[in-house]
Amino acid sequence: MSLESFLILSGIIFSIGMYGALSKKNVITVLMSIELMFNAVNIAAVALSRYVVPRGIAVNPAAAEAEVAGALASGTALGETVLSTLLTGQVFAIFIITVAAAEVALGLGIVIALYRNRETVDITQANLMKG
């Protein structure tokens, strides 16, 4: 259990999701594959947030610099600015989950509308806007 194993697991799931999203005819399978890709990205974000020093992505670089400099000079602990940025990846994952929920609601609405009008969930038949 290390950062690398989590990231490779996330890469495997992302690749499976991408294969499904590109190669399937059923719209709902494509949507499910996209959900797999969202989950893979979430795993990568949380794993990076758990294992990697976030100094470069500190939300407040000036305060973070001051805290790091203080810790280097006087031997005090790092303060809240640096420590709370440890969880930036988890906040990103929360936003990704929010966007995924909105995307799935809209996507399935489109699927229902498509099925009502064309009697199919085959994505290759959905070519109404083809020139």
Binding site: S15, I16, M18, Y19, L22, S23, K24, N26, D122, I123
Partner: peptide, 16 residues
């Protein structure tokens, strides 16, 4: 109908 693949199956596999 099942869950068939479209004609991009092998390119998608290679890409993934």
């Amino acid at each position: 109908q099942g869950n068939p693949s479209n004609r991009f199956r092998y390119p998608a596999l290679v890409l993934a």
